[in-house]
Design a protein around this nucleic acid. Structure first.
Lengths: 184, 184
DNA sequence: CCATAATATATCAATTTGATATAAAAATAA
DNA sequence: TTATTTTTATATCAAATTGATATATTATGG
């Protein structure tokens, strides 16, 4: 699923500017499965416009750069449904934190604790944000958005709890090994 | 964390060819947080060799292409520790399946069921593979590898269970909406 | 009053993806 | 037995994406 398709997906929920699409990728339900920075969004929107899948209306704003508001059209919606009908690629997950923690034996207990605590706080914030806003932020609460948000919530909660429940054991093991090495 | 660094990480666990590094990214503990295809691994290994962080010994094989076995050296290990000491970037997750399911209202119940069942089977396979091999596959079971593998297992299990527990409700809602629309 | 965040688009080098090419053995299916 | 697929192994390259940077004004917090 390339950025062009994810942009079509956001626009299927309502008109947006490139800047607003970026926000959808960072917050809200799309943030659980979609990514994309300005460097990919703006070219994607230009390409979609050139291909006649979305329409652009420039809104001159006072004391702000002109805002280009994009709206999906019939052909664009057909293209989205077409992409949606294809077999999904495998999920992709990348985590610097897990990479670092894999080498926990080479790190100080203090650093381990700091890293894990920070990530727990991050998940807590994310979870609080999701439960407060609830259906509101989740695309007006359709069956699909609800399902996807629930998935995100469940996974974040598990990740958070795992870090919380296993932090002490990890640090203990690393500390023990450090003391053994120091004694040699 | 770029591919160069992840390659250094794999090589810190033992010597490997490019082909074997790829397998580490697909299976085993590294698969939970690292990615990379041949198109990024081979250039990364060339670059690391040129930078003097790893050493390469070509092993001529009978009836096989020459195998280039790479080994991390002291400078490479220092570079790895240096990268490990930096603040980790945010985790990145991308899922075509969730993107498709977000638009569940535009899909047939049959397709929804097929997609979700396939993903449950995928998670089951992954979880079975992880529990059977256990510490064996997890880098000889150090504190870090164990922690990371446990994380992967917990998250996969939650994802699998969520799909299983919420599949019926999603399909019911979509079916209900379809019947309402058809009646209009 | 000053610094930072938010609004808004755009560009671009460097990196990464995903596909393709090559080649043969081993495993599996027909 | 034969045909197909998978596995072993490296390499390249166009296209897509990332991450940083540029520009400019308003709003907000300290």
């Amino acid at each position: 699923m390339d950025v062009k398709t994810t942009c079509l997906g956001v626009l299927a929920m309502g008109e947006s500017s490139g800047y607003e699409i970026r926000k959808h990728f960072e917050e809200g339900p799309f943030s659980h499965f979609a990514e994309g920075g300005f460097g990919s969004i703006y070219p994607a929107l230009n390409r979609l416009t050139a291909d006649g899948l979305i329409d652009c209306s420039e809104q001159a704003q006072e004391k702000r750069p002109d805002k280009k508001v994009y709206r999906i059209n019939e052909r664009g919606f057909a293209a989205l449904l077409d992409a949606l009908g294809k077999a999904p690629a495998e999920d992709r997950y990348k985590s610097d934190l897990l990479f670092i923690l894999f080498f926990a034996d080479h790190m100080s207990p203090e650093r381990l604790e700091g890293l894990i605590d920070a990530r727990i706080a991050f998940y807590d914030e994310k979870l609080a944000h999701m439960s407060v806003r609830g259906a509101d932020i989740c695309g007006a609460g359709g069956a699909g958005p609800d399902f996807v948000c629930g998935f995100g919530q469940a996974v974040y909660q598990t990740a958070r709890d795992y870090l919380n429940d296993n932090k002490a054991a990890l640090i203990d093991r690393v500390t023990a090994r450090r003391e053994t090495n120091a004694a040699e």
